[in-house]
Amino acid sequence: MITLDNIHKSFGDNHVLRGVDLHVARGTSMVIIGGSGTGKSITIKTILGLVAPETGTITVDGQDVSKTGDRDAFLARFGMLFQGAALFDSLPVWQNVAFRLLRGSLARPKAEAHEIAIEKLRRVGLTPDVADRLPAELSGGMQKRVGLARAIAAEPEIIFFDEPTTGLDPIMAGVINDLIREIVTEMGATTMTITHDMTSVRTIADNVAMLHGGKIRWTGPVSDIDAATDPYVDQFIHGRAEGPIETVR
């Protein structure tokens, strides 16, 4: 469904992506792992058009994303949970969740959008009394859940999760991981998740790809990761300081 072919991206002298090749099949959950600063978030942002790659092609259902005429319709297929939730400070929680449903091609009447927002908040384990609060009044875990509710509000075909458990305590991280897995299964969505949390990997992933040195070093089913012979994967999944991955980056 999503194919990245030889993607390159630099920021000044920093050549972040050096030929990323990756395929994500429809209805599967791909988790990208890798150290900090290896370009995982940039990879996802190139698919959404937030960052333009210098070379290479990205296709979604065979269509080159750089040639999509109707950007609104293209983006309506995606949902994204950002690392810091990226909730809009000035809007109450329910309007954050229903943001896409209140404007653009997926706009619904306000009452209906509100109802959907409440339902999605319930789906991520938040009570309706949260709906009228501002994001700043919520804890980090609650903000992540609101971000998750916003990502699924319009029931997109493709959902991206950027470090969904970063900054959360282990219990809340477990809750978020389970929620993502449940939602992905029940919605049948195609998902890409970025994380360096191996618990998340084992809970969320169907397939795993490891990004290192600007390239995909290893990819395969999550069930194969423990048996992977790649020394980079081995070091990463066991969290060892010694190995081919430099600890000073």
């Binding site: 937030l50 609104d72 983006l75 309506a76 995606f78 810091g84 896409r100 653009g104 997926l106």
Partner: peptide
């Protein structure tokens, strides 16, 4: 600027705005 730093601008784009 704060919206940009906290990825709210990116979030707007992904929400077709």
């Amino acid at each position: 600027a704060t919206m940009k730093v906290t990825e709210q601008i990116d979030a707007l784009v992904t929400l077709s705005t």
